[in-house]
Amino acid sequence: MTPARHVTPVCGTPCWVNLMTRDLRATQDFYTTVLGWEFRPGSLGTGFSVACVQGRPVAGLAEVAPGLPMARAWTPYFAVADADVTAARARERGGTIAVGPVRFGLGRGVMAADRDGAVFGFWEGRTLPWSAGRGNAPAFLELRTRDAFDAAIFYAEIFDWASGEPGSCEATYAYEQDTVTVRQGKDTVATLRGGGVGESPDPRVRPRWHVHFQVDDVESAIVAARAAGGTATPVAPSPGGGTESVISDPGGALFTVWTRSVLAGPMTTADQEPV
Rank of each mutant, 00 (worst) to 15 (best):
A62I: 08
E63S: 04
E63W: 01
E63C: 02
V64A: 10
V64C: 06
P66R: 06
P66K: 10
G67T: 03
L68D: 07
L68M: 14
P69M: 11
M70C: 11
A71Y: 09
R72W: 11
R72D: 15
R72T: 15
R72Q: 15
A73G: 03
A73F: 01
A73Y: 02
W74P: 14
W74I: 09
F78R: 13
F78Y: 13
F78Q: 10
A79Q: 10
V80K: 13
A81R: 15
A81G: 15
A81W: 13
D82S: 13
D82A: 10
A83F: 06
A83I: 06
D84T: 14
D84Y: 07
V85G: 03
T86K: 15
T86E: 09
T86Y: 13
T86N: 13
A87G: 12
A87M: 08
A88G: 00
A88C: 00
A88T: 07
A90T: 14
A90P: 11
A90I: 15
E92P: 01
R93C: 04
G94Q: 03
G94I: 03
G95N: 10
T96M: 00
T96A: 00
I97T: 01
I97M: 03
A98M: 09
A98D: 08
A98R: 05
V99K: 00
V99H: 01
G100W: 04
P101Q: 12
P101D: 02
P101R: 07
R103I: 02
R103H: 02
R103N: 03
F104C: 09
F104S: 13
F104D: 11
G105W: 04
G105N: 07
G105L: 03
G105F: 07
L106M: 11
G107Y: 02
G107E: 10
G107P: 12
G107R: 03
R108C: 05
R108N: 11
R108V: 07
M111F: 08
M111E: 12
M111R: 12
M111Q: 12
M111P: 01
M111W: 06
A112P: 05
A113H: 00
R115W: 02
R115I: 14
D116H: 05
D116G: 05
G117E: 10
A118R: 03
F120Q: 14
G121N: 07
W123A: 13
E124I: 09
R126M: 14
T127H: 07
P129F: 04
W130D: 04
W130P: 00
S131P: 00
S131E: 14
S131R: 12
A132R: 03
G133K: 14
G135P: 01
G135C: 00
N136T: 09
A137K: 09
A137S: 15
A137I: 12
A139T: 15
A139R: 05
A139S: 11
L141E: 05
E142A: 10
L143Y: 09
L143V: 01
R144N: 14
T145F: 05
R146G: 08
R146S: 08
R146T: 14
D147M: 01
A148G: 13
A148T: 13
A148E: 13
D150Y: 00
D150I: 01
A151I: 10
A152I: 02
I153K: 04
F154H: 07
Y155T: 04
Y155H: 06
A156I: 04
A156P: 02
E157F: 01
E157H: 07
E157A: 11
E157G: 00
I158V: 10
I158A: 04
I158M: 06
F159H: 10
D160Y: 06
D160N: 12
W161T: 12
S163F: 07
S163V: 09
S163T: 14
